[in-house]
């Protein structure tokens, strides 16, 4: 009797567990698993607007077209990598550097923290629209300021050379979000480590290199990974700032914009699906590589051997 009651209780308990995760699991099936699989399937078909019934299977044709004929594929990939190559490291460096300074706990630190953080609270659409005005060739602040100090104005959003730097500027404006994460990490470093180092005669620089940076590597790793994943999918800034064509000479055509155009302007869904699968594979491989190599440089407190 007692055993059966316990058994019933355990089964009931398990059942409740399934009930509790059911909404999430239903969402997973409908919004993650099925679309992911169907997307893979679509990428091997020639599904376009007007396709009725089962989309025609064309094997690897989409992929071969992407790699062999699609000039915008390499162009948009180059633009995306260029954007990433600058914005991700620069954002990390600024965020880490300012967080270090704010962590010195000087007076007024909270005010400064707020000022650095506020731009990353601005909704992305608003931030982008603000930058469109701010960088406006004639009436924007930046050019008027450049003229004021005697420098030459720049056509920020209409010259091919300036579009990518403008996008990078916009992304740098939001470094405050990463700064806050760094700051939380820095404040979690035990004070006695620094005291011990001070007693041993460690200089400020040594403390930074041998205590702060190693203990912050998990946070740096997290911010780096999230920055890269987000950077590959940069879309709305570009869409709003320079439009779907990617600006003059398509200097601002990033990868997601190419996917968007193929899917929602040309309605070549199969082709766009293939493009998205390629982006997924790139992000996936990069994540695996980063996680794999992280053992060498990311310091986790419980694994003493990794220290060097």
């Amino acid at each position: 009797m007692k055993l059966r009651l316990q058994e019933w209780w355990f089964r009931n308990r398990s059942l409740i567990g399934f009930v509790f995760i059911f909404p999430w699991f239903a969402g997973f099936i409908i919004f993650d698993a099925m679309p992911f699989i169907y997307n893979l399937y679509l990428s091997f078909t020639d599904y376009q607007i007007g396709t009725v019934g089962v989309p025609p299977w064309i094997g690897l044709e989409n992929y071969s077209e992407i790699f062999n004929e699609d000039k915008l594929f390499s162009k948009s990939m180059y633009n995306t990598l260029y954007y990433l190559g600058y914005s991700v490291p620069l954002r990390l460096i600024f965020a880490f550097f300012i967080a270090l300074i704010l962590n010195l706990r000087v007076r007024g630190m909270e005010l400064y923290r707020t000022l650095f953080y506020v731009p990353s609270v601005v909704p992305l659409v608003a931030a982008t629209v603000i930058f469109a005005g701010f960088l406006n060739t004639r009436y924007g602040f930046l050019n008027q300021f450049l003229v004021l100090i005697g420098a030459a104005p720049v056509r920020w959003l209409s010259s091919p050379d300036a579009i990518k730097p403008s996008l990078i500027l916009l992304s740098l404006w939001g470094f405050g979000a990463q700064m806050i994460i760094f700051l939380a990490g820095l404040q979690g470093i035990p004070e006695d480590l620094y005291e011990a180092a001070a007693i041993d005669g460690g200089t400020g620089w040594q403390r930074l290199v041998y205590i702060t940076v190693p203990l912050m590597t998990p946070t740096i790793f997290f911010n780096l990974l999230m920055g890269l994943i987000g950077g590959f999918q940069v879309f709305e800034q570009v869409f709003i700032l320079i439009g779907t064509h990617g600006g003059p000479l398509q200097a601002g055509l990033v990868y997601m914009l190419h996917v968007y155009n193929k899917a929602f302007r040309d309605f070549e869904f199969g082709y766009a699906a293939a493009l998205s699968v390629i982006l997924f594979l790139i992000i996936f491989v990069l994540t695996i590589l980063l996680v794999y190599t992280s053992n060498r440089w990311v310091f986790y407190g419980d694994a003493q051997d990794n220290e060097t």
Binding site: Y38, A263, S276
Partner: peptide, 17 residues
């Protein structure tokens, strides 16, 4: 795993659905 799944690989099928 789904936290690592970029939205771009679900965008088109979801729209079609």
């Amino acid at each position: 795993a789904t936290m690592m799944l970029p939205y771009v690989v679900r965008l088109i099928p979801l729209f079609l659905f």
